[in-house]
Amino acid sequence: MKLLIVDDSSIMRRAIQKYLDENRIEVVGTAGNGLEAIEVFKKTDPDLVTMDITMPEMDGLTCLQELLKIKPGTKIMVITALTDNATGLRALKLGARNFLGKPFTPEKLNEAFLKLIEGPKR
């Protein structure tokens, strides 16, 4: 599965890439803001996206909606420092499939990716 990583912090983009031990996932692009993410998304056609919220140019929740207009089946996981319940709920209502708070450990990230790929357990 192809992954696009969107975060305005280059440290976070590299951390997500480094921590990822799911061998079904190939990172096909990264972006530092929502506008850049739309461009990279169109070029790389990913199946999965990790999306920060607080970013310059275009925030993550606006970008998430734009990406889902382009490809509605995209599985988007919001990874953000905004860990309040209302923000999590809003992201899910807008179409995010999962929500992970910062800071995170490699274990939490990989658990979240598994949930993103496989969907909620019934």
Partner: peptide
Amino acid sequence: GSLCDMTGEIANTIAGNARQVFGA
């Protein structure tokens, strides 16, 4: 650049996590 980025990310995370108490 990485050191600056990291410093911003610490501040962003501490401030963002405070929304759990202060609200959206």
